[in-house]
Design a protein around this nucleic acid. Structure first.
Ligand SMILES: [Mn+2]
Ligand SMILES: [Mn+2]
Ligand SMILES: [Mn+2]
Ligand SMILES: [Mn+2]
Lengths: 152, 152
DNA sequence: GCTAAAAGTTAGACGAAGCTAACAATCTGC
DNA sequence: GCAGATTGTTAGCTTCGTCTAACTTTTAGC
């Protein structure tokens, strides 16, 4: 467990062709990028289920700022990847795996957000930046962020 | 200038459909994502020109950890977007605009890296994480990172 | 219980970013 | 200055993530 992996879903991009340390870093970033969308979706779905009782595609679309067909296609991919289950014209459910990923993402998001605020950032900007940064923070960095956020 | 924009190249994704603050954050992240690759390329090209005297596609491919055809196609896009110039079978040059972007990216990369190391991260991991985080750091956050990195 | 609005789906387009296979140009070492 | 190695290009395939347009199903209000 070196870089950002978070029990990644992967399968794509033939690794190995490493050699260069730089190349490895870029490959790690590309791997993280492939999971970003899934992470944001399951995190949002968990939140909707918690606050609204259910996760409807229309609400996902609104919160994500995309159109309904985009959500539909993305949900199909998440289902294919075993993170959610869904039935036609019904709202969405997380699988065990999806729930685990959501929890992990929520946790990471929370730490990055608190860290940025602790650093002195306004909550608005902190929320924006955390939404992007959270996917590129290794376990080590996360631990340091948490320590900083919790320091008295 | 709210979130990550760094004089972004954009043009895609019809904004406006905001309303929700969350949606705006996600749209910002997607916008940042669209510039990531261009940023990494121009930064690397600038570095190669500086250290090797020229930026050859084969070296870009090695450092980025991708194949030569992938580099070729990406370079075509960068040329289309006015960041580089290139001639068949020759190495790559940055335009004025590309040079400006490279400088900005280098600067951002440097600050994020120094910040992470200052936080207590090992240089290895710091380099990996910085490569991903740099694209999702707003001006405000960058300023705080710089201040933290430079504090006595 | 109809009907109109809301929500969801399907089809199809498009660009980005990756790959492999095959070919072409350039460089290098003798 | 030629041959073989290296580098670069082209063609074509794939998946992802976005969109619009058109259609279907469900829900809600009367
Ligand atoms: Mn996010
Ligand atoms: Mn998040
Ligand atoms: Mn980078
Ligand atoms: Mn960089």
């Amino acid at each position: 467990m070196t870089h950002v992996d978070h029990q990644a879903i992967d399968a794509a991009e033939p690794e190995a062709r490493a050699g260069d340390a730089r190349a490895e870093a870029f490959q790690g970033v590309r791997a993280a990028r492939r999971n970003e969308l899934a992470e944001d979706y399951v995190e949002l779905i968990a939140e909707l289920i918690h606050t609204q009782g259910e996760a409807r595609p229309v609400d996902i679309a609104t919160k994500m700022g995309v159109t309904a067909p985009t959500v539909a296609k993305t949900l199909d991919r998440l289902a294919r990847d075993g993170l959610i289950t869904r039935a036609k014209y019904r709202s969405v459910f997380l699988t065990e795996e999806g729930r685990a990923l959501a929890k992990e993402c929520r946790h990471r998001h929370e730490i990055v957000l608190r860290f940025l605020i602790r650093l002195g950032l306004d909550p608005e900007t902190a929320e924006h930046d955390a939404e992007g940064i959270e996917h590129h923070v290794s376990e080590r960095t996360l631990a340091l962020f948490a320590a900083f956020a919790n320091r008295s």
